[in-house]
Design a protein around this nucleic acid. Sequence first.
DNA 1: GCCAGTACGTA
DNA 2: CGTACGTACTGGCC
Length: 951
Amino acid sequence: MTEPTNETLLVVDGHSLAFRAFYALPVENFSTAAGQATNAVWGFATMLSQVIEAEKPDHLGVAFDMKGGTFRNDMLPQYKGTREAAPEELLTQLPLIQRMLKALGVTYIEKQGYEGDDIIATLATMGDDAGYHTLVLSGDRDAFQLVDDNVTVLYPGHHFKDLKHMTPQSIVDKYKVTPAQYPDLAALRGETADNIPGVPGVGDGYAAKWINQYGSLDAICEHADEVTGKKGEALRANIDQVKLNRKVNALVRDVDLGVDIEDLTFGSVDVAQIDALFKELEFGPRTKTRVMKIFNGGVSPAGTAQGAAAAQSGGPAEDKLDSGLDTPKITVIESAAQFEQWVEAHRHEINVPDDIVDFPVSDYSNEAERHIMCGDAVGHAWTVTAWGDARPGRAHVQACAVATASSAAIIEAPMASSVQTALDRFLKAEHFRTIVHGYKELLHLLSAAGLGMALPMFDTKLGGYLAQPDFHADNLNQAAEHFLDIHVVDAEQPAQGVLDFDDEHTEEDLNERRVHDLAVIRELAVTLGPVIDERRQYWLMRAIELPVSRVLHGMEQSGAKIDRSRLTDMRDRFAADARQAQEMAWQYAGGEINLQSPKQLQKVLFVDMGLKPTKRTKNGSYTTNAAALQNLYIHSVDNEQANGFLGALLRHRETNKLKQIVQTLIDATNKADERIHTTFEQTVAATGRLSSVDPNLQNIPNRNAVGREIRSVFVPGEGYEALMSCDYSQVELRIMADLSGDEALIEAFRSGADFHKYVASMVYGVPVDQITGDQRSHVKAMSYGLAYGLSTYGLAQQLNIAQREAEALKNRYFDTFGKVHDYLESLVATAREKGYTETIFGRRRYFPALRSTNRMARDAAERAALNAPIQGSAADIMKIAMIRAGQALDEAGVKSRIILQIHDELVVEIAPGESEQVTELIRNAMEHAVDLAVPLDVSCGIGSDWQLAAH
DNA sequence: GCCAGTACGTA
DNA sequence: CGTACGTACTGGCC
């Protein structure tokens, strides 16, 4: 074994990849005019490109099987019978793939009498011996026997892109045997894909059990008589087959290939050959561009991405995780005493001033409190984090960690109860001296270990969001790349959870990645802390975002109870309606077109039926959206076929959408508790709003009766008697009244009259009791449009009036509420000047596009800049209300709990006998969240489901 | 298998 | 040609 080279060799199972590509892509969409299938070729190029981009290998070789049997067929005639039966359409593409590889400058290898697997085994062994880190891309599990500390098998999952990195540890975790024992296991189990029978009734589990009991397949065979039961009989009956299997699945590692690993370079494409081939295959320019980027010097043996990063940081070259950060030293905690000793030994590194630790949040209207700073303290705090699956309702934790800059205590789950107690005590005492990344996710993970944690001092996820609300990082690595400009060359982290390592790494790898995470969090805090301070935003984090995280954690953990039978009934009903509408539409259309395909609809409507299209989509085609269909429907009364079709289509659109919404809710309902646990995203919406995903419970239908019915499946759970819904009326308009100081608008709110009627009466100069329905709705639309930067065109469109009329309305409106007009103008002007907008509580959003020379982009930025402080202030207010409400419920010691937030509405699950008390608590929390020049109006309703709780 | 486009639900 | 979101589906890719 020579010195490690720090270089990566990628060995590809050509047949496996070609098969995968062929079956992943529909062949009928990938053929040349002459009828040559190209799906496998195109897919091969695409998938190989993906892997190269992700793994950035320095060397590359592709192995293929050769026609004509191998020594295996002589032993086992039916061997790989299934593979030989590959469709003609795939077989004809193999030479094309090889031609492509040659043109791309990639070496491929085949050898008479051997399989691709043997070539792979040989290359991996050569790579291993030469000190390379070798990656084997193969969908064939026989390759698992090659895995060792320097050989990793990339095994495609359901989606090709999420390749499992099979390491010795992950093989053991999955199969309970070592890579070297894997062929024994496979021999016992058999391999359906290769047409190899195993012992009937014996799968991975039994095979592993025997191997671990006897040590090896040979030993099992020797002791076959001792194996009891039906499985033992089966084993004895098939023992020759198993022995044969084992001979066949052993890969040959010393085939004479006549190549050196050093020669397996790539990076120079034969452009003329590629042009010729791609022309022949009718591949487009996009394919060529992408392939050229990857295969033409995109990755060269010298100066790879990680090499450059390591050189820059001066760190150890062989460390792929290295990003120039000093990682803390690892201490794996085994006992409570050890943890406590560790804490005491490192306490001197912690220095957080008392004014931060003891900072009270007494009153959200007290501006004097908002000057709190986190200063240098962020660099002298404990880092607390955890790894695992943080999805609400199904969270589980793999490990927790507490760290200083120099040292990390890692506590693996499950933890002993004494360790748990020690950690709990630590968190209770030190939470205000900690920094975290994603407090809400951390709470889910800690909860899974029976732990809790009061507010930390600083959250780098929230900090990044406050600093740049338009940037969204899916995980810690992305945040690090963005804010720290460090590049971590490693498998990407999943979005869900703080970090969810799957079973693909050794324990050492795992802990190295963990301390790297800890270093990243610390570095993020040190970078973001001063930014937050400079903008005076620490109060926002400390008094709003962090407490909201805690409330949201509770809401997600609780979830919303679902009446499943009502839901499935509804699904069946909508499905039947949609089906009926579809049948009818098909009859009018004269064919079974896909009603969910805009493209097919365009053809039927605008070509076959010759209807006059209205609007275009941004792509230039004619829109088939509901508004357009409605229009066509009205104007097609004299065309019975079109009218009938459009009517049916509109009905199908509506019912099918509802069916889909209901089905999504069914799928999202937790089996265990019959509840839906959504995730509220706190760092996604650029204005400061929350969003809801997986599923989105903030867009459950509410506008018409049929859709609103869906709300009735949200019911109180066991131990609760009702749901309450409380919402703010016209918050955004009230904020505009306050911030603009417009006396007329303020008076409109203070009067307590029907707001829109009152405003209409002022705008039109007629008494309130003479306002017509039209006047009221026009003024209402105008009022709401204000905060969106509505154009007169848009207003006219929405109200179905002439643009002149809309213009007149707007002028009258602004004549009446002059200061509102001035205020809205000032918002844009200030944003242009400062580069950002600000909410009441100092939440910022930057608008570089205000200086764009592109008019469209600039106009859009102006509208967004107009809206951001208004929508954002409303979001701030609701967040404060939620914190106050959560606190009030806690302090009252009631069982009722907040379960949903829909921007201006809270849904509360009410415990028996608490309805009056809780209504008042929530109403008070919402009404007095802030003190504005106008009152905040909250209306509440209670009912036995969400729909009935409406008011 | 992956991505962009279209459509549509909410505040 | 009104802001802010999340999700489902189709069809191009060739």
